[in-house]
């Protein structure tokens, strides 16, 4: 019996898939050996300190590059770490993490060489991705002169940074977050991850008193 091209393609796919499952067994055994307490503790519940909102990009595995363990970071990752005020998925994540898990830090992290950012700096129709990338195009419009004055790689870096700042603003506009900041000192952070070096850097996202007062007046609800 000869194998068809499809059979061969399927066989090699199955091998890659089997690899993932095999590596899981090795990881589980190794983790149980090195940290015998970890799995029994995890089974009893989670108390992460950090909510991480980052990009789906495969080069940005947060728990790995933060050097942290299972149980440390509650995670939402989407295309280009975009936050839409009305997006139920990210809103539910933020609500659950801040209100119920009572995390101490919320991080919005962008990164260099982001495909979503590059798409928003171009003008190609991308179907269903277009409405998702809308906030990036709005930032492009609002900062058009600045972005046009930069070489393309620098412009992409700048738009990634603007997107993190805008994302943080949207997080801070949520009443559940405003309350947690005032009542128990919840901290928010904007980060950029450099995929070319693996290094994280923190943006200065401190707001003026005036901005904070205006935000509280407009967005605080009880």
């Amino acid at each position: 019996m000869t194998l068809s091209r499809t059979d061969i393609a399927r066989a090699s796919l199955t091998d890659r898939y089997a690899t993932g499952l095999r590596l899981n067994k090795e990881w589980a055994a190794q983790t149980a050996r090195n940290q015998p307490e970890l799995f029994p503790t995890l089974a009893s519940g989670q108390t992460p300190q950090i909510l991480w909102i980052g990009c789906s990009d495969s080069r940005c595995p947060e728990t790995t590059f933060l050097g942290l363990e299972p149980g440390d970071v509650f995670v939402h990752r989407n295309i280009a770490n975009v936050l839409h005020p009305g997006d139920l998925s990210s809103s539910a994540v933020i609500e659950y993490a801040v209100q119920y898990l009572r995390v101490n830090h919320v991080v919005v992290c962008g990164h260099t060489s982001c495909g979503g950012v590059a798409a928003a700096l171009g003008n190609k129709n991308l179907g269903i991705l277009d409405p998702w990338l809308f906030p990036l195009r709005q930032l492009r419009e609002r900062n058009l002169k600045l972005l046009q004055s930069m070489p393309s790689e620098e412009a992409a870096g700048k738009l990634a940074e603007l997107n993190v700042r805008e994302g943080l603003n949207i997080v801070k506009q949520k009443s559940v977050v405003l309350n947690a900041i005032r009542e128990r000192g919840l901290q928010l952070h904007g980060l950029i991850y450099d995929v070319g070096s693996g290094v994280l850097s923190e943006l200065d996202t401190e707001d003026s008193e005036e901005v904070i007062r205006a935000r509280l007046t407009a967005f605080h609800t009880e």
Binding site: W27, Q46, S56, P61, V75, H76, N78, S89, Y96
Partner: peptide
């Protein structure tokens, strides 16, 4: 799931660059 106890790369034994990730509630 967004759950902190289920980090994608760690449970699959995969490196940065190998798996595209979406996590929600």
């Amino acid at each position: 799931c967004s759950d902190s106890r289920v980090p994608a790369n760690e449970i699959m034994g995969l490196e940065a660059g190998e798996v595209f990730v979406h996590r929600n509630i």
